[in-house]
Design a protein around this nucleic acid. Structure first.
Lengths: 154, 154
DNA sequence: TATACTTTGACTATCTTTGACCTTTGTAAA
DNA sequence: TTTACAAAGGTCAAAGATAGTCAAAGTATA
């Protein structure tokens, strides 16, 4: 049994795979109507499951002729770098962004599923570090070192 | 006279033997309801009877539609784990020892060359930690979390 | 009796769902 | 053109639903 949010996520992702244009347009109110919930639930799903880190771009317009457009970003090392280069160079990165990067490397087939799990596991370990700043720094280094290794032995 | 905890342990183990998937999902509150005790008693049982040493893996999620998942490791994985458990559970591990374990995993064909390099890369990152004790601790956690992840999705 | 194991409950953390209020945009009326 | 209003979508904080932690109190055992 899954949550409303999970159901809506699956529904939207299915629509996306069926779409030829690479994006879908929805009406927030219609969608919430279909799932019998308040409209803002749609925003919750968008904010937690269709983030830039996860490879989605959400645009919208209010008022008459309003819409919510969800786009699955074409995975390429280029736009990956666009999104994450700043983090990687700065040597610090948040947990969310790190996981997003790993997910997208996997989408790209740049790493295997097992490799992505290994990388994610390293992020789990960091929770034992109390010092938040050290945590972010170490996360950055871990990612950087793992990426460099992958590149070196590609 | 057997304790509440023993009863709960037996109940869960029975459910596990009946499960085809190799794991069971329960609701902490439902279970404690069935045994007429406080919810945290479930945690006590999990912590004392369904530990890694005993060949179990426990995952959970909070919030709406939350759950506790108990997984019984396959015998082959348990054996593999036995080899490393002592090191891993000690909580701290030296760099040499860690690299030895990784090499061993590779020799056993349990991980690929790339995976071994990935794991080694994480050890490299640790050098930025000044605190030697924290370094050793984190090394232990990294290894454990990575291995667990591999086991979980084996 | 001392020690180890068990049980409880108050407090905390996390994830989801809801609803009241806010902002933007298109368009019909003035 | 300007204005008013309806029709979107957005924000945010509170409520709801679970699970986790920890230490104190209770019980069994050596």
């Amino acid at each position: 049994m899954s949550t409303l949010a999970d159901g809506m996520e699956d529904y939207l992702k299915k629509l996306l795979t069926l779409s030829v244009s690479g994006y879908i347009d929805i009406k927030r109110k219609e969608l919430s109507g279909k799932f019998n919930c308040v409209p803002s639930q749609v925003n919750y799903v968008l904010e937690t499951r269709f983030t830039l880190e996860k490879g989605y771009l959400v645009e919208s317009k209010r008022g008459g002729k309003g819409f919510v457009r969800i786009r699955k970003l074409q995975a390429s090392l280029e736009n990956l770098l666009d999104v994450f280069l700043q983090d990687i160079l700065s040597g610090q990165i948040s947990d969310d962004r790190a996981r997003g990067l790993i997910q997208r490397l996997y989408d790209l087939k740049y790493i295997s599923l097992r490799e992505s799990r290994l990388m994610e596991a390293t992020l789990d370990s960091l929770t034992i570090i109390k010092d938040k700043s050290l945590q972010e720094t170490l996360r950055g280094w871990l990612l950087k070192d793992m990426l460099l290794m992958l590149i070196k032995f590609a």
